[in-house]
C-alpha cells in the first residue's frame, strides 16, 4: 500500500518534469529568435540545456536518490569530459608561428 502510494507520487513528479521540459523547450526556441550575440546565445542555450539535462538525469534516471558509487564514477566522467574540452582551449596557446584565425 505504502509502495503503491510512493509510486503514485513519483508518477505525479514525472508529469511535472515533463511539463517543465516542454516549457523549457519552447523557451529555448523562442529565445533563439532574439538577436543576441553569439557568446550570449551560446550561454543562454547551453544553460537551458543544462537545466533540462539535469531534470532528466535527476528524476528520470533517478540520480537524485542514487548511491555514492555512481557519483564517484560520474566524478571521473566530469573530470575527463572537462579535460577534453579544456584541451581545445589549450590548443589556442599552442599554434605554429604565423598561424592566424580568420573571423
Amino acid at each position: 500500500m505504502s509502495q503503491a502510494h510512493d509510486i503514485k507520487q513519483e508518477v505525479r513528479k514525472y508529469w511535472k518534469v515533463f511539463v517543465a521540459l516542454l516549457i523549457l523547450t519552447i523557451v529555448t526556441v523562442a529565445i533563439s529568435y532574439l538577436q543576441f550575440g553569439l557568446a550570449v546565445a551560446v550561454m543562454v542555450a547551453l544553460s537551458i540545456a543544462m537545466v533540462k539535462g539535469s531534470l532528466v538525469a535527476c528524476f528520470f534516471m533517478h540520480l537524485i536518490s542514487e548511491k555514492k558509487a555512481i557519483f564517484v564514477l560520474l566524478g571521473f566522467v566530469v573530470f575527463f569530459f572537462l579535460s577534453l574540452m579544456l584541451l581545445i582551449y589549450a590548443s589556442y596557446f599552442n599554434l605554429p608561428q604565423g598561424t592566424t584565425y580568420v573571423s
Binding site: T28, V29, S32, L38, A41, V42, A45, L46, I48, A49, G53
Partner: peptide
Amino acid sequence: FLFPTLYLL
C-alpha cells in the same frame, strides 16, 4: 544538447 547546438546557434 544536440538540438540547440546544431539548430539554434
